[in-house]
């Protein structure tokens, strides 16, 4: 028997399988991904707008929102500066240990945030390496803002670099070298040539970093001490409300973080449309 030409049998034979596969994919995504996210809003507003507002404006939750925003505001500039610097270093120069450096920057992606938190406790804790010295000098890092910020810097380390580096590598350095030849200073080259070229990747990296910073749970939970109304960030406040059996309150607090997640998704889609 001769093989049928491709396409002769294909339409009839392949109608069923694609539809089945698409259907299963849609159903699974709806069940496991879409419904859980929609459910957050459903539960937050299930008992009305008034209760939702009361839950969000509850002093401890409000404080947690403020603290979380403060952490993000402190983490973002540092991470952006580090992200641009490390991407520039890796994209524009060759030096021994370059690959190792890249691996080290990406290590926080592979390490559980809980481990990061434990590392910080072993370094700055009462029995830690630097802990006794800190106590002697009356400085507090753990169970306070500095510890929360530093652990957040740990878990978000690669975010900006990862978005900026591929773009810098793809674009090459011809434009920058041309600008230098024309007599521009290093800062001028950076502001006028490099920054405009990487601005979208930088923005996206910053959004990812910010989203991760406000959503970080494990690492922060170890170093924050969970002091209500003092060192409780929004994700920790959600757990606290959940454990207090105030589930509606927990969902109300969760909507804030879900909105940030939605911003990330919209940005990512826009970025892909720009590229494609």
């Amino acid at each position: 028997m001769q093989a049928p030409p491709p396409g002769a049998l294909a339409p009839r034979a392949s109608q069923f399988v694609p539809r089945l596969l698409i259907g299963v994919a849609l159903a699974l995504t709806a069940i496991f991904v879409v419904v859980p996210m929609a459910y957050i809003f459903h539960r937050a507003f299930a008992e009305g707008w008034r209760l939702f507002a009361a839950n969000v404006l509850e002093p401890n939750t409000l404080h947690a929102i403020g603290l979380t925003a403060l952490v993000a505001v402190l983490v973002l500039p540092v991470n952006i500066a580090f992200g641009i610097a490390s991407a520039w270093l890796i994209a524009r120069f060759t030096f021994p240990g370059r690959k190792l450096l890249l691996t080290l920057i990406e290590i926080p992606f592979s390490i559980s945030p809980i481990i990061a938190g434990i590392c910080y406790l072993l370094l700055y804790g009462r029995q830690g390496l630097i802990g006794p010295w800190l106590i002697a000098h009356d400085m507090q890092i753990l169970f306070a803002l500095p510890g929360i910020v530093m652990v957040t810097l740990f878990v978000t380390a690669p975010f900006v670099m990862r978005e900026v580096l591929p773009l810098m590598q793809a674009q090459g350095s011809e434009q920058e070298q041309a600008a230098l030849t024309l007599g521009a200073s290093g800062w001028q080259v950076f502001r006028r040539v490099t920054l405009p070229n990487i601005r979208w990747a930088l923005l996206y990296g910053a959004v990812l970093c910010g989203a991760r910073a406000v959503g970080e749970f494990g690492g922060v939970s170890v170093v924050s001490g969970n002091i209500r109304g003092q060192t409780n960030t929004l994700p920790l406040q959600i757990e606290l409300l959940f454990n207090d059996l105030n589930v509606t309150g927990a969902f109300a607090a969760a909507t804030m973080l879900t909105l940030i997640a939605l911003v990330v998704l919209v940005m990512k889609t826009l970025m892909e449309m720009r590229r494609g």
Binding site: T29, V33, V34, P36, M37, Y39, I40, R43, A211, V214, G215, E216, F217, G218, P235, L236, I238, E239, F242, A250, F251, A254, L257, T258, A261, L262, V264, L265, K268, T269
Partner: peptide
């Protein structure tokens, strides 16, 4: 786009839902 929800959503929020 939906595929990225689990990365965008904070883990505590996912756990709660």
């Amino acid at each position: 786009a939906m595929v990225d929800i689990p990365f965008a959503l904070p883990t505590a929020v996912a756990g709660l839902a």
